[in-house]
Measured scan of single mutants.
Amino acid sequence: GLEHMADEEKLPPGWEKRMSRSSGRVYYFNHITNASQWERPSG
């Protein structure tokens, strides 16, 4: 619920959580730099 939404908002600017269609794993994508990574971004 609300706790999940608050957790999402802690991601650094530009980052969003996405799911890989090929593997079904969650990864993180930065739409500003077009960077993507499996680890949760910090800072």
Rank of each mutant, 00 (worst) to 15 (best):
G1R: 13
G1Q: 13
G1V: 13
L2Y: 14
L2R: 11
L2W: 14
L2D: 14
E3L: 09
E3F: 03
E3T: 12
E3V: 13
E3A: 13
E3R: 08
H4M: 13
H4Y: 10
H4R: 08
H4D: 14
H4S: 11
H4N: 11
H4Q: 11
M5H: 12
M5V: 13
M5E: 13
A6W: 10
A6I: 11
A6F: 11
A6S: 13
A6N: 10
D7R: 07
D7G: 10
D7L: 09
D7Y: 07
D7E: 11
D7F: 07
D7M: 09
E8F: 04
E8N: 10
E9H: 07
E9G: 08
E9A: 08
E9W: 07
E9F: 07
K10E: 14
K10V: 12
L11C: 03
L11Y: 03
L11V: 06
L11N: 01
P12V: 01
P12L: 03
P13M: 08
P13I: 08
G14E: 04
G14N: 06
W15M: 00
W15G: 00
W15L: 00
E16K: 04
E16L: 06
E16A: 05
E16H: 08
E16Q: 06
K17L: 09
K17R: 13
R18E: 01
R18N: 02
R18W: 02
R18G: 02
M19D: 03
M19P: 02
M19S: 07
R21K: 14
R21T: 14
S22T: 14
S22C: 15
S23W: 06
S23C: 09
S23K: 08
S23L: 10
S23E: 08
G24Y: 04
G24S: 06
G24F: 04
G24P: 03
G24V: 04
R25Y: 04
R25I: 05
V26Q: 05
V26N: 04
V26R: 04
V26M: 06
Y27I: 03
Y27L: 03
Y28S: 00
F29R: 03
F29I: 05
F29L: 03
F29S: 01
F29V: 05
N30I: 03
N30H: 05
N30L: 02
N30E: 01
N30W: 01
H31T: 15
H31I: 15
H31E: 06
H31M: 10
I32D: 06
T33Q: 03
T33R: 03
N34A: 06
N34I: 04
N34E: 05
N34W: 08
N34R: 14
A35S: 11
A35R: 15
A35H: 15
A35E: 14
S36I: 15
S36V: 15
Q37T: 05
Q37M: 06
Q37A: 04
Q37D: 01
Q37C: 06
W38I: 06
W38H: 04
W38R: 05
W38V: 05
W38Y: 09
E39Y: 08
E39R: 07
E39I: 07
E39K: 06
E39S: 06
E39W: 09
R40K: 09
R40H: 09
R40G: 01
R40E: 04
R40Q: 05
R40S: 06
P41Y: 01
P41W: 02
P41V: 02
S42H: 11
S42R: 10
S42E: 10
G43W: 15
G43L: 12
G43R: 09
G43K: 10
G43S: 13
